[in-house]
Design a protein around this nucleic acid. Structure first.
Lengths: 119, 119
DNA sequence: TGAGCATATGAACAGATATGCATATATTAT
DNA sequence: ATAATATATGCATATCTGTTCATATGCTCA
């Protein structure tokens, strides 16, 4: 097959249906972007530690900062990231803002990741 | 309570058991590192697209590069990242190296993420 | 052995990102 | 209103990361 294997091994051509299946099952560009953004959000140990705090109970910024031994600013920045991704929600009570998990999906995803790590 | 609320609201002190529960359930530093590294690996749309390819079938580097319209080098680098995380495995067949999913855990985690995105 | 193809890899660079610092906003109490 | 506290946010920066380019390695065939 001259011409077909110009810049690649021609093994793909042997299984043409594979390429079609990839095309069919590959999510849209938007979905791929959102998916990777979601995982990127989990891909930072500070944010993961924040989520483990919120697994226990809702907490204000300062509580989290104290528990994790980090600055208020660092925590607030990361809470903003988590909120932008709709993984957590905020509730103001006087001067304090209490953060909590947006839904239990978050817990499921993290636990799934933990399962993979623990083995 | 003078002294106790020096650098933070003292709300945490009201629920002392919360702090204890956080301590108890927070994974070790090593586990947190591995967990965030795992999610970090999923946090790139190129790597996710590679995984969606491998959901269909094992593939050589060049197949993937062609399917995704990216350079051989870029794909090879990302395959190395995925392999370092033990998410995929490699099998050499002559000049080609075929990559495939290491286990079905990968599929589960990605699907879980997709569920969260699709709603 | 040498040519050619598939893949791996190191260096460099551009773009992203987590944190600290300074400061703004919001709420409460005096 | 003023002060004090809790949080948010813009900017600067050091670090990390994805891609490209050039080249090395590994395999096959003539």
């Amino acid at each position: 097959m001259p011409g077909l294997s110009a810049q690649c091994c021609d093994l793909l051509h042997i299984r043409q249906n594979v390429a079609a299946n990839v095309e069919r099952t590959m999510p849209s560009e938007d979905a791929l972007f959102e998916l990777s953004e979601l995982f990127k959000t989990f891909g930072d140990s500070t944010r993961i530690r924040i989520l483990f705090c919120l697994f226990i109970d809702e907490m204000c910024v300062c509580d989290i900062a104290n528990l994790l031994g980090m600055s208020q600013s660092a925590i607030s920045h990361q809470l903003a990231v988590l909120k932008r991704q709709k993984l957590i929600k905020a509730r103001r009570d006087g001067k304090a803002v209490f953060y909590s998990l947006a839904d239990d999906h978050v817990r499921t995803i993290i636990n799934q990741g933990m399962d993979h790590v623990n083995e």
